[in-house]
Design a protein around this nucleic acid. Structure first.
Length: 241
DNA sequence: CCAGTATCCTGCAGGC
DNA sequence: TGCCTGCAGGATACTG
C-alpha cells in the first residue's frame, strides 16, 4: 500500500479495543479506537472497507482483516494499492503530514466565503484547483467535473480569470453536488462495492462525467472530453464558458 | 512558489 | 480465445 504498515504492531495495538464512531477529514477516514489511538485510512481509487461475516469469502487483494467480537470482520480491500491504512497515536492527528496539509471542508458553511479569494489567487484551471486537496479537501474527479457543469464554467478557466461572484456560485454548487451525492448514497462505478462487499450499484445519475459523445441534458450539445492536470474532464462546449 | 507531468498498481474493456 | 493497449475514483515526487 501507499504507506507501509507494521501489521504485527497494529495487531498488538488494536487487540481488545473497541471501535468508536468513525470520522472523516477530506478523503481520509479516521477509525478511533477506545480508549485512544486511531486507524487512518484512505481508499485511493480502488479501496473498499467491508464489514462482513468472518466466513464470507475473501476477495482478492484483501490487505487487512480485523476479527470483531460479534463474529464479523472489518476488511480493507484495495487492488491498486493506492490507498492505505496507518496507525495514529493519540495526538498524531495534528502532525500527520497528509492531514495537516488539507484545506477547508467542502461542506463547511464558510466555503462560499473562503473559496472565492483562494481560487482567485491562482492561475491554474479551476478543474485542477477543485482537485487540489490543500485548498478544499474532499472533492474528487467526478464531483469536480459535475460541479463545473452545474455552475456553467469551463473547466480550463483559470482561477484568477474567474469573477469572485462566479467563484461564490461555484462554491455553492460544490456543496449542492456533494450533498445530493451523499443523500443518494454516493457514486458507484465498475468495481465499487458497499460495506457489505456486494457489487456496486449505480446510485447517482451523472450529468457530464463519463458522458462524452452524449447530448448535454441542459442544451443538447455533444459532451466533450479532454485531459486537464492529468485527469479526464468531461464538459459541455456550449453551456460551460 | 506555482503549474504541470510521471508514477505507483491491478483490472477491465475494446481492438485485432 | 488470447494478446495487447489504454484507461480508471488519487496523491505525491519531481521538473521546469
Amino acid at each position: 500500500m501507499r504507506r507501509p504498515l507494521d501489521v504485527e504492531r497494529l495487531a498488538k495495538l488494536a487487540t481488545g479495543r473497541r471501535f468508536l464512531e468513525p470520522r472523516r477529514r477530506g478523503k481520509y477516514l479516521l477509525l478511533d479506537l477506545e480508549p485512544a489511538g486511531s486507524l487512518l485510512a484512505h481508499l485511493g481509487m480502488s479501496g473498499n472497507l467491508q464489514l462482513v461475516d468472518a466466513s464470507s469469502p475473501l476477495r482478492n487483494h484483501t490487505h487487512l482483516r480485523f476479527d470483531l467480537e460479534n463474529g464479523r470482520q472489518l476488511r480493507f480491500v484495495d487492488p491498486r494499492r493506492f490507498g492505505f491504512v496507518d496507525w495514529l497515536e493519540p495526538g498524531e492527528e495534528v502532525t500527520d503530514g497528509s492531514l495537516v496539509a488539507l484545506g477547508i471542508e467542502p461542506l463547511d458553511p464558510g466555503l462560499d466565503e473562503e473559496m472565492p479569494p483562494m481560487y482567485h489567487a491562482r492561475s491554474a484551471p479551476l478543474k485542477s484547483l477543485l482537485l487540489d486537496q490543500r485548498l478544499v479537501a474532499g472533492i474528487g474527479n467526478i464531483y469536480a467535473v459535475e460541479a463545473l457543469w452545474r455552475a456553467g464554467i469551463h473547466p480550463r478557466r483559470a482561477g484568477n480569470r474567474t469573477s469572485l461572484s462566479r467563484l461564490a456560485n461555484l462554491a455553492r454548487v460544490v456543496q449542492v453536488v456533494l450533498a445530493e451525492a451523499i443523500t443518494q448514497g454516493g457514486t458507484t462505478l465498475r468495481d465499487f462495492a458497499g460495506t457489505d462487499g456486494e457489487a456496486g450499484y449505480f446510485a447517482v445519475k451523472l450529468s457530464v462525467y463519463g458522458r462524452q459523445g452524449e447530448p448535454c441534458t441542459r442544451c443538447g450539445a455533444t459532451i466533450r472530453s479532454t485531459v486537464i492536470g492529468g485527469r479526464t474532464t468531461a464538459w459541455c462546449p456550449t453551456c460551460q464558458r
